[in-house]
Amino acid sequence: MDIIISNSSDTPIYEQIKEQIKNKIVSNEIKAGELLPSIRSLAKDLRISVITTKNAYEALENEGYVETIPAKGTYVSNKNIKLIREEQLQKIEGLIDTAVAIAKISNISKKEIQDMLDIIYEEE
């Protein structure tokens, strides 16, 4: 698992960690039920303070991405993956909405958009 921290960035370090772990959960790189590294070992490996790591984990927990079981560790939560997927779908729908709106204004056909989608999707 890669976590890349920038010390010169204006984003606080705890937020950088939070965002990156969140992205990995959403992209299914870290799977539901998986154990995250302990606060202390993550702090050591990233060479940051324990409290910073703790803040990141607490924020993830508040947003429902992870769960902490005392004396065991922090796990990627199970129940919310569906919810997260739904969120993502909504986001995509919104973006496609915009795309279609632009297409209609500019007289671009459905076929053209579908082709574009195929190409972009394959590229990824």
């Binding site: 606080p12 370090i13 705890y14 303070s49 409290i51 910073t52 803040n55």
Partner: peptide, 8 residues
């Protein structure tokens, strides 16, 4: 103070 309070 905590490090984060200061730096952030």
């Amino acid at each position: 103070k905590t490090r984060d309070e200061l730096i952030d």
